Simulated scan of single mutants.
Amino acid sequence: MSGRLLRWVGTGAALGALLATASPAYAVPEPSGPGERPVSELLTDLQELYRKAEESTETYNATQEKLKDQRAEVTRLNGSLARARTSVRDSRGAAARFARQQYQGRTNISPYVHLLLARNPQQAVDQGHVLGRAAAERAATVERLVGGEQKASALAARAKGALATQVALAAREKEARDTVKGRLKEVEELLASLSTEQLEELARAEEEGMAEAQKKFLKSGSLSGSPGSTPTRPPSRRGDSALDYAVRQIGKPYKWGAEGPRSFDCSGLTSRAWAAAGKEIPRTSQEQWAQLKRVSLRKLRPGDLIVYFPKATHVAMYLGDGMVIQAPRPGTRVKVSPIAANPLLGAVRPDPSAKPMKDYVPPKLPRGAMKGGDAGYGRAAAPRT
Rank of each mutant, 00 (worst) to 15 (best):
L6D: 11
R7I: 10
A17N: 05
A22E: 12
V28C: 00
P29R: 09
G33K: 05
P34K: 05
P38L: 04
T44H: 09
L46K: 04
Q47S: 15
Y50H: 15
E55V: 14
S56T: 14
T57A: 12
T63R: 08
A72P: 10
V74A: 07
T75H: 12
V88K: 06
V88I: 02
R89M: 10
D90Q: 10
R97S: 13
R97T: 08
R97P: 00
A99F: 00
A99K: 04
R100M: 01
Q102L: 07
R106K: 06
I109P: 00
S110L: 03
V113S: 01
H114A: 06
H114I: 00
V125I: 14
Q127F: 02
V130Y: 11
E137M: 10
T141Q: 07
E143D: 15
L145Y: 05
G147M: 07
G148M: 11
K151S: 12
S153N: 14
A157Y: 08
A157N: 09
K160E: 15
G161F: 06
A168Y: 01
A170V: 01
A171K: 11
E173F: 13
V180P: 01
L184Y: 13
E186P: 13
E186T: 01
E197P: 02
E197D: 13
E200W: 03
M210V: 15
E212R: 11
E212C: 07
A213N: 13
K216P: 00
F217M: 13
S220K: 11
G221M: 01
S229N: 14
T230F: 11
R233H: 15
R237I: 03
A246Q: 08
I250N: 02
K252W: 13
K255P: 02
W256L: 06
E259L: 05
G260K: 09
P261S: 11
G268Y: 11
G268W: 14
S271G: 10
A276H: 11
A277C: 10
G278Q: 06
P282F: 03
T284L: 08
T284M: 08
S285W: 02
Q286G: 04
W289Q: 05
K293M: 03
L300Q: 02
R301Y: 00
G303M: 04
I306G: 08
V307E: 07
P310W: 06
P310I: 09
G320Y: 02
G320H: 04
M323C: 00
P328F: 01
T332W: 00
R333T: 07
S337V: 04
P338K: 01
I339P: 03
I339E: 03
A340D: 01
A341L: 01
A341V: 05
N342A: 13
P343E: 04
D351A: 08
P352A: 06
P352L: 06
S353Y: 08
V361T: 14
K371V: 07
Y377S: 11
A380Q: 09
A382E: 07
